[in-house]
Design a protein around this nucleic acid. Structure first.
Lengths: 194, 194
DNA sequence: GTCTATATATAGATAGAC
DNA sequence: GTCTATCTATATATAGAC
């Protein structure tokens, strides 16, 4: 049962504004101007801005996790290929798409000003992504693909996301994809020298 | 010739609010409540918020660069020690100090909403820091300390700052210093295995 | 320099007609 | 569902008295 079109449009616009301007730097009026409905109509779908913000992150997580599930289950691909596609997918949906920042990273920087319900969703966003990476790294060990010890998996996940978030942030600031290509190479070469 | 005490207090409070809440999430009223002067008095020192924001970054850069200049000129220290002190200094002044975010990183996430004059200062912030790191890496090559090629210096600087900014962002989100200890170890071990 | 008072704009949100 | 109209709060900013 698909929600109303306007509902989805509002979500999409709010997502885009969050990723470009940040949660505290867009208003219902901004959405109104783009979608073409009055702000009171937005309140009909999302009574408060916290409701809207929460829905944005939830939808974002669901879509992303669905894609990642397909990727990790693809039997045709090596772990290296999966890791490459993971990184390339993120870059394609952020920096390369109108210089958006990562939704989670954007909200992370505003974390102290966010309604608690959104804070929780942001942490969930990264927890889900980190869990995915840990599954991939585990698979790579079992298949003898990556040079890596089981004990290191947790720290490697922290490393990968720290590097990616920072690279996305700085690539956007300087409008320079270099940060991202460097980060990509560092991550890939780290586990597979061949 | 030292500026008035209130002037400095306003700057300090604005700096702190920027690093914790972000540029768009604090107001003159917030500063007023902490410093104990009316908002109109703040306008006396900083006519517009853009003036205030610019002054905050400028002062921040100046102080930081002064410290870094002393550090790099210290003949007693190895390059490894200098790099360690660089990282530890940043962490001490951000995450360990009331869970502040890096000033540059915080403003970088808001970059599309900032007055152009502040955008320029934020880029300068990172340019200055990257220049310092490049000088250190060059010194380390000349002294045969780090395993590193001259051609790699630019990319290594991008790598270091991406990793640090991302680690600061995620450490704060999860209130977990682990991201920072992992980042520190990755950077140090990268250049000196001993 | 600091204050009171005020101007102007915008924010999130609600009531009620259609 | 969408609108008009309105409310209340807050933002940045200015004028002018002290």
């Amino acid at each position: 049962m698909k929600k109303h079109d306007i509902y989805q449009q509002i979500l999409d616009v709010a997502e885009h504004l969050t990723q470009t301007r940040g949660y505290n730097a867009f208003s219902y009026k901004d959405i109104s101007a783009i979608v073409g409905v009055k702000t009171s109509s937005i309140h009909y779908y999302f009574p408060t801005k916290a409701d809207l913000g929460k829905a944005v992150v939830k939808k974002h997580i669901d879509l992303l996790c669905e894609e990642l599930e397909q990727l990790i289950n693809n039997k045709q691909l090596s772990c290296k290929k999966k890791l490459e596609k993971f990184i390339d997918g993120i870059v394609a949906k952020t920096y390369l798409d109108r210089q958006k920042m990562c939704l989670g990273g954007m909200l992370a920087s505003d974390v102290l000003t966010l309604p608690p319900v959104i804070q929780k969703e942001v942490r969930l966003f990264f927890t889900r992504l980190e869990d995915w990476i840990k599954r991939l790294l585990t698979e790579s060990i079992n298949k003898n693909e990556f040079k890596l010890k089981k004990n290191d998996i947790n720290n490697e996940a922290l490393f990968i996301f720290s590097l990616l978030e920072g690279a996305l942030l700085l690539a956007r600031l300087f409008q320079d994809e270099g940060h991202l290509t460097v980060a990509r190479k560092q991550i890939i070469n780290r586990y597979c020298k061949d």
